[in-house]
Amino acid sequence: MVPLEEVRGMEIPENIKKRLSIPFEENFYAGHTACQGCGAALGLRYVLKAYGKKAIFTIPACCSTIIAGPWPYSAFGAPLFHTAFETTGAVISGIEAALKAKGYKVKGKDGIMVVGWAGDGGTADIGLQALSGFLERGHDALYIMYDNEAYMNTGIQRSSSTPYGAWTTNTPGGKKHFLEKRHKKKVIDIVIAHKVPYAATASIAFPEDFIRKLKKAQEIPGPSFIQLFAPCPTGWRSPTDKSIELARLAVQTAYFPLFEYENGKYKINMPNPKKEPKPIEEFLKLQGRFKYMTKEDIEVLQEWVLREWEELKKKAEVFG
């Protein structure tokens, strides 16, 4: 993959140069049917830039099924396999095994990347068993969970990755029941409990970091996992132009901190490591799904965010 830098012969300011590490070639094609401002679609564009045509994708029934297009269309420039909701981990295991049996090089430099791309529902809930099996058996493949924090394709129902206080169509709030009552499930911690060689969080607002992690996932043998924060304007009741801003704020508030877990070591990759997290309210106020939260609700969420953030920092300190 040729980086933009080499294609574009111009003098480039230092601060922009980093952005140009993103490969230039597009393998995610326009004309796809994602909603306006879709974080998942942008995520796919980055993954397809990172791996080019040297990847085989598996997508379960989710928004990305629609994004990739109905028959006979495809927005992908790489081979793509659509499968049932809960099977991503198992299907990528089968593909990897088959490629190996055929004598193909899988993972590593110039190897084929076997990539599973599933949403938070398909990963944290219905697909958790197959994910665990895939991680535990040690297949040479990458599982990406694009996290938009609810079942968006079926019309915005809560998943175990939906945060505290969020409105969804099945946590509507009312006289008797509050909105979403449970805190966001830490899928990445479950993944790390498998002692995988490589796991990381990433955000569509930080593509250089995401693409660097994708490359790392390619180099390191064994199963790798990336949880990609991908805002959904439709489900979050947020303006379509705010998707990047929200993804950035999720990181800056430490609601969704960027970090890597590599062979037992934690490393935090925050854009400004010295900076204190911004108040969670900055992230919440741009989204209609949080508009019913009371001051107390916001405090509950804020406390959870900071506690989790402290825990992560401790882990990075002790196992850094």
Partner: peptide, 28 residues
């Protein structure tokens, strides 16, 4: 027998892995 044997965690994953393998063009 020269084959990859995947010890899956359920029958659902057994057939899903076979589907993946067969889709990748091998006998499963």
């Amino acid at each position: 027998l020269d084959a990859e044997f995947i010890k899956v965690e359920s029958e659902h994953s057994a057939i899903s892995a076979c589907v993946g393998a067969s889709a990748a063009g091998v006998r499963a």
